[in-house]
């Protein structure tokens, strides 16, 4: 469960994290794959610093900012959705989930616009090693956003159908935990690819 809205004095440490334990195994596997990507990028860069730095300058940091703010907002809305369900307010929970999904949609649209702009300028995965990492890393993450939105949509449908309650919302927490993982990965990806030089 998220820390949100639980009075401090009533919280005791849990031995297991919120949601289904299986999602945590999946999250760990996903994080490991992204770690390999990030570390490979950083060490490959160390052999081609000038090329990576000059290619990085062609990226649009303003779109990356929109992407980052939309994912952070989406994660926050997902936390509020779980908090609403904990208060047995399914209608608010549903509304927060829709808001989280809209933020995810903004991310996908902004990223698609960025990809289209690159292709319009003749830039693709084969342009150089920087773009090979850029496209493979960001597109792999893009697919995770799509997957996360499918899961959140399922959560929203089940919320609307009255399948969750203040006593039973493990499925909702499972979905939102996956969504937070997608957010954490982008939070590292953004400075690594767009800013650090």
């Amino acid at each position: 469960m998220s820390v949100e809205s639980i009075p401090e004095q009533t919280i005791s440490l849990s031995k297991t994290p919120s949601g289904d334990l299986a999602i945590w195994i999946f999250i760990m596997a996903e994080l490991l794959v992204f770690a390999i990507f990030f570390i490979s990028y950083a060490f490959t860069r160390s052999n081609h610093v000038e090329m990576f730095n000059s290619a990085q300058l062609t990226l649009d940091r303003n779109i990356a900012l929109v992407n980052t703010l939309s994912l952070i907002s989406s994660s926050y809305f997902a936390v509020r959705a779980v908090a609403a369900m904990r208060e047995n307010n399914a209608r608010h929970c549903f509304n927060w989930l829709i808001a989280a999904l809209l933020m995810g949609l903004i991310f996908l649209l902004a990223k698609s616009f960025e990809y289209a702009d690159h292709y319009a300028h003749g830039i693709n995965m084969r342009t150089n090693e920087f773009y090979m990492f850029y496209f493979s890393l960001t597109f792999f993450h893009f697919l995770h956003v799509v997957m996360g939105m499918v899961i959140l949509s399922a959560n929203a449908i089940k919320t609307r159908a009255g399948n969750y309650s203040a006593e039973n919302y493990t499925g909702l927490e499972t979905g939102t935990n996956y969504w937070h993982m997608v957010d954490i990965v982008w939070i590292i990806l953004f400075p690594l690819i767009y800013v650090m030089r």
Binding site: M1, S2, I11, K15, P17, S18, V79, N177
Partner: peptide, 24 residues
């Protein structure tokens, strides 16, 4: 910038994923 990103990741893990309230 990297430290800021790591701090942000930790905040999400602790407060959004609720790991601040998990032992072990």
């Amino acid at each position: 910038v990297l430290v800021l990103a790591l701090l942000k990741g930790q905040l999400i893990g602790d407060y959004y994923m609720g790991l601040k309230r998990v032992s072990g």
